[in-house]
Design a protein around this nucleic acid. Structure first.
Lengths: 236, 236
DNA sequence: CAACATGCTACACACGCGTTCAGTCGCGAG
DNA sequence: CTCGCGACTGAACGCGTGTGTAGCATGTTG
């Protein structure tokens, strides 16, 4: 898919190599994904062009505008994610640890970094990605409940959503507060985060946190029969 | 470190119009906090000046630079948070729902928005705020364990950190993916998020998620006696 | 060989940014 | 009253940005 080996920059025109046009586009696109992942979406077209070894004008020539370039990057990243997912669908089905599987390969670090930047940014890509993760989580938890591996919930959809948001959110916050200089460090950071969080996560998932059902029962009582409407609706 | 009440220093001057000098500074500062919360830290000095009803030059005259203005905003927000915390220390001690208590007042929406923007940005303020929340969580959980309200953890610090990161991260992700147009909507969004997440959170905290201890035991076994060192240390 | 097509570059333009500066206004002091 | 001083303004500067455009170099074609 991407020009790993022989495709260096060719400053002036192409000779043989009928894919010259294609590779230039792809080179710029990959450089943009990496730059966006590294510096955020404020990265300049000039920096991307420099990384790709071309002039800024060529970027416009191929993509029309920076926004169009970013949209294409979004599509590319999303397609790559789907690809990786299909490849590792057996692994991912194990426990929803799709992130870990596709972050374990260092070559995917730019993709992961791009997705995280999108989450910081709140773009459509991020929404789509998170929605996708939530839909997957619904399937996983349903399956886990059916096989007796997980306790049932009063609202499976809400639980799947919460579990996904909290897991992704914790990772996002961690990476944001302690960002890697090099996207390839992302893998290391993610591993460090997993190492620090996996025990409390497993504890929480298997042993819970509270010893008493009082808070939960109180809340359930409150939901089915709110004691005071005005207090709940005063600022809505 | 921080000017608690309304009386700041008066660098030069006369005491007629006792608040004229002061109000200008404060008005710009408050406008900056609000703008930063609304538009992020890319907001222009011109926009802030316009909101405050002054010229851009005056902003520089008072604060020296945009970065200095932001640092002062950070200090102001942090001081305000400490204030609110001391006011509601009894409420906050209930269950760590400090966020809810100080987000319930609509007047604090800019403060909350500013903190969330800082988290997106990963600034020092965000780090300090999160660290503070984690330290509080350690105290709360310790107290909860001591009174038998919470189950003990094999690593209290790691659990407190994970619980805090997941809660704040979920909120951050929610707000980022579905940002409010008006910071005052933040309260509504936070309430909506709480409404959607509180049930699964309580379920998870009291009933857990997994029915079997196998994953936890496997992990504990793995930690104390790693089956394969190379796989774990290959990319560290 | 001459004409054309095209991947690509160098340059330029308009814009918004943070920041600077000369100058005005209002007011207390001598 | 005059003076000085500090808050304050409006215009400008320098810079970096995204984005057009003219032109160069090269491969292809009649």
């Amino acid at each position: 898919m991407l020009n790993v080996r022989s495709a260096e920059e060719r400053p002036t025109g192409r000779d043989r190599t009928p894919v010259a046009d294609q590779t230039a586009r792809a080179r710029i696109r990959d450089a943009a994904v990496l730059r966006f992942a590294t510096d955020g979406f404020g990265a300049s077209v000039r920096a991307i062009a420099k990384d790709a070894g071309v002039s800024p004008g060529l970027v416009m020539h191929h993509f029309g505008s920076k926004d169009a370039l970013r949209e294409l990057c979004d599509e590319h990243v999303l397609a790559r994610i789907r690809e990786l997912k299909n490849e590792n669908i057996d692994h991912a089905a194990a426990g929803g640890n799709f992130l870990q599987t596709f972050a374990s390969a260092e070559e995917n670090a730019p993709i992961l970094g791009y997705v995280l930047r999108s989450m910081q940014d709140g773009s459509a890509l991020a929404r789509e990605f998170v929605d996708h993760m939530i839909r997957d989580a619904v399937q996983y938890t349903e399956h886990a409940v059916a096989t007796g591996l997980a306790v049932p919930s009063r609202d499976e959809a809400a639980r799947a959503r919460y579990l996904t948001l909290s897991a992704l959110g914790a990772l996002l916050l961690e990476v944001t507060l302690d960002p890697p200089e090099d996207p390839s460090d992302l893998v290391a950071i993610l591993n460090r985060f997993m190492a620090a969080s996996y025990l409390p996560l497993l504890e929480l998932y298997t042993e819970g946190f509270l010893t008493t059902r009082r808070m939960l029962d109180d809340y359930l009582m409150y939901v089915t029969d709110p004691p005071d409407r005005t207090a709940a609706a005063e600022s809505a």
